[in-house]
Amino acid sequence: MSGFYLRTKCVAYLDARRGRRAALARCLLGGLLPLLLWPAGPASADSTVRPYTGSNHSNPPLDRGQLRAIFFVRQTKWADGRVFVLPDRHPLNIRFAKEVLGVYPYQLRSTWDRMVYSGTGVPPTVV
């Protein structure tokens, strides 16, 4: 299972306290095996939204510029990596866009739609 996880780099995000279940349920329904493993520890005490990159221990934290490059699909250099997001109107998606990326959720959606219908990029997978 961990081998599968390592090859499927997953960038999702969660509210450490309140939104975890919702995010998790959606990931599970989407068949995303790596999220079966979940960090539990002091970090779960805060309620900030942060990206989930598989493990807090093996991946360095990403800064805002890197996260924007990932979620606006300018960085695609992971051969076997996927970016997962929640549906547009999910409260976590809205908080993540505003608090972490510093953009409005509709900016993400409009960038992804333009990519799809103009053939210029592959948007993140909605789970």
Partner: peptide
């Protein structure tokens, strides 16, 4: 430090 999911609400989904 890692805890597998045991919340019964999601067990069927996980399975």
């Amino acid at each position: 430090m890692y805890t597998p999911i045991v919340n019964p609400q999601y067990q069927s989904g996980a399975a």
